[in-house]
Design a protein around this nucleic acid. Structure first.
Lengths: 150, 150
DNA sequence: GCTGAAAACACAGACCC
DNA sequence: GGGTCTGTGTTTTCAGC
């Protein structure tokens, strides 16, 4: 798809605040409101923009422990695990991985007990390695970081 | 903080589409627009709502490889690595971890060559284990999943 | 890509339950 | 805590260029 600097500017501004009005957005990128609307529509149609969401601070609502768990299937029951993890109440993301282990899962938990429960609940058909996160290193995720210097 | 079902409903709707107007939001949660505005303001002030952002599909803009790298420092140069990773052009998130390894880093890359470059660039003071992601398992991240059944 | 006018919306104040 | 009304200014949308 076509994709110019103005599109990147729009994505940057929406990344910082997706509730910005079209009007304010149009001022920041020096275009008229209808033009900005049209560009956003195209980015949505192309699937570059998947949606707009709110960032919720999980720590503020009691989920103070982040951990990543490496899950290895004992008997190749991949689909069983996938079905389970999609709706598991503490799961945030999950990747099917190459190398040691079969899945990498991120949990957001209230206590270590939550994590023990998780591990126990899949222990019959998996083995696990639990990696506790001490802290998160804040990363610059501005889309421009990925696209510049080419 | 206080936190009732209506607050959860508001967060759910904003999670699905943060560009909703206050009016539309108020219809969906059966409250008047001023009340919804006030609740959102409180959620923002309390830090539960950290911000509003756009979901960008990285695959659509050429970043088709996801990988997670376990980084171990040879000489404890944690700050050096943190400073590096914060602005590294392919990094998406990073955790300081307990257990084997010191950091877990997620990269979004265009090619395996990108990943080789990353590993090479920190090889002098770290050792790494690269975990390629075959695919992502789509997780239900509705905030209600975390809060229900208590 | 732009403008311009009509319709929809957000916000603030005053007031009440 | 919640709701309404009303006024003001802003924003979106759509037609036409």
């Amino acid at each position: 798809m076509k994709f110019d600097e103005v599109d990147v500017l729009i994505l940057e501004e929406l990344q910082k605040d997706s509730r910005l009005s079209i009007r304010e957005l149009s001022k920041r990128v020096n275009l008229s409101p209808p033009s900005v609307t049209e560009r956003i529509r195209k980015l949505e149609d192309n699937g570059v923009i998947e949606g707009y969401t709110v960032k919720i601070n999980k720590k503020k609502i009691g989920f103070s422990i982040d951990c990543i768990i490496r899950v290895t299937m004992k008997n190749g029951q991949y689909e069983r695990f996938k079905t389970f993890i999609r709706e598991y109440k503490l799961s945030e993301w999950c990747y099917r991985t190459a190398g040691e282990g079969c899945f990498l899962v991120k949990l957001s938990a209230k206590s270590l007990n939550d994590i023990e429960e998780f591990v126990n609940s899949i222990a019959s058909y998996t083995t696990t390695e639990t990696i506790l996160a001490f802290s998160e290193v804040e990363i610059n995720n501005n889309i421009n970081k990925f696209l510049k210097d080419k």
